[in-house]
Nucleic acid binder design. Structure first.
Length: 274
DNA sequence: AGGTTGACCTGGACGC
DNA sequence: TGCGTCCAGGTCAACC
C-alpha cells in the first residue's frame, strides 16, 4: 500500500523519465470513480501541456504542467493498488489500466489500478489567490517539534488513529504508523492528547527516521507495489511489527500482538510499547 | 466539531 | 478442483 516513501519513490522515478516532455494525447477508461475531475476536464487540461516537474505532497503525486502561460497540476493518488508506469508504447496495456498519456518522447505514462481506490484530478491556477496543491495536512519530514506536538493537543482519539488522519499529518499510513510507534515505544491505543512532550518528540524522530530509511530502500512492497519501472522496494524486510503477528519482537522476543484501532489492523509489542 | 464506522473495490489466502 | 468467505486498507460520507 503506497504511503509516503512509496509515493516519493514513484514520483522521483517518473520525474526523471518524463519531465520536460509534452502530453500529446490522453486516453481514459470509463470507470467514473477513478476520476475526481471529469475525464473531459482532465483531457482538456493535460493535452498539449508540458510536464515541468513530478513530485510528492502527502500521499499524492503532483505533476506540474505548463501550457502557453497557463499553469495546472495533475494529481494522482495511488489509493491501495495504483501504479504509475512509464512504458514503451509496444508494451501491452496491463489489465485495469485507467489512463494512458502519450508523451512527446515516444513513451507512455500509464495509470493502472486493480482495486480502484486511486483517484485522478486536475487543479488549474487561474488567479493569483489560487494556491498550488498543498495537501490536507502537514509534511511529516518537514514539521518542527513544536508544531508536531500541537497537532495532537486535546485529541481524545488513539495516537494510531491520529497518525492515519491525513488532515493532521499527511503521508503516514498503516505500515509507517505501526513502525513509528514501535520505534518510539508508544502503545497505539494511547490517547493522542495524553502523550507527553517527550513521547511526541520521540514519535516525530522515529517517524522521520523510518520514512527516510524506507525512501532509501525504495519503499515497502507488501502487496503489489512497484516503482515507475515496475521494480519492488525493500523496506518490507525492515519491518519490526507490521505483519509480524505472533513472531518474536526483535528487541525483547515477546510475540507481536495484532489488534484493531480506528478500524485498521495494528501491530505492536506489548512489552516494548507502553 | 471531533470521533467512529462502514462503503467502496478486487485479488489472494484460506477452509471445506 | 472449486467454490465460498474473509481480509487487506486510503479516503470519504454518514452518523453519533
Amino acid at each position: 500500500m503506497p504511503e509516503l516513501p512509496e509515493v516519493e519513490t514513484v514520483a522521483n522515478g517518473v520525474h526523471a523519465r518524463v519531465h520536460g516532455q509534452t502530453i500529446q494525447s490522453i486516453w481514459t477508461s470509463n470507470k467514473p470513480q477513478t476520476f475526481k475531475s471529469t475525464p473531459e476536464v482532465i483531457s482538456e487540461t493535460l493535452t498539449g501541456s508540458r510536464i515541468e516537474r513530478v513530485h510528492r505532497v502527502g500521499k499524492t503525486i503532483v505533476v506540474d504542467l505548463k501550457r502557453s502561460g497557463m499553469e495546472a497540476q495533475f494529481l494522482v493518488h495511488l489509493g491501495m493498488t495504483g501504479r504509475l508506469l512509464v512504458s514503451e508504447p509496444d508494451v501491452p496495456i496491463p489489465p485495469h489500466t485507467h489512463a494512458v498519456l502519450s508523451l512527446s518522447g515516444g513513451r507512455e505514462l500509464r495509470f493502472v489500478d486493480a482495486r480502484r481506490f486511486g483517484r485522478l484530478s486536475v487543479l488549474t491556477t487561474h488567479e493569483e489567490d489560487d494556491q498550488p496543491y498543498s495537501g490536507p495536512g502537514k509534511e511529516p519530514l518537514l514539521i518542527s517539534p513544536p508544531d508536531f506536538i500541537a497537532l495532537f493537543r486535546g485529541r481524545k482519539t488513539p495516537i494510531k488513529a491520529a497518525l492515519l488522519n491525513q488532515s493532521l499529518l499527511h503521508g503516514v499510513g498503516n505500515i509507517y504508523a505501526d513502525e513509528g510507534l514501535f520505534r518510539a515505544g508508544i502503545r497505539p491505543k494511547r490517547q493522542a492528547g495524553r502523550l507527553t512532550r517527550a513521547e511526541l518528540g520521540r514519535l516525530r524522530e522515529a517517524l522521520i527516521t523510518v520514512l527516510k530509511h524506507a525512501i532509501e530502500l525504495g519503499g515497502s512492497s507488501v502487496s503489489d507495489y512497484v516503482d515507475a519501472d515496475g521494480v519492488r522496494g525493500f523496506f518490507q524486510l525492515e519491518h519490526r511489527v507490521y505483519m509480524r503477528t505472533g513472531q518474536p519482537c526483535l528487541v525483547c522476543s515477546t510475540p507481536i500482538k495484532k489488534i484493531v484501532v480506528g478500524g485498521r489492523s495494528t501491530h505492536f509489542c506489548p512489552v516494548c510499547q507502553q
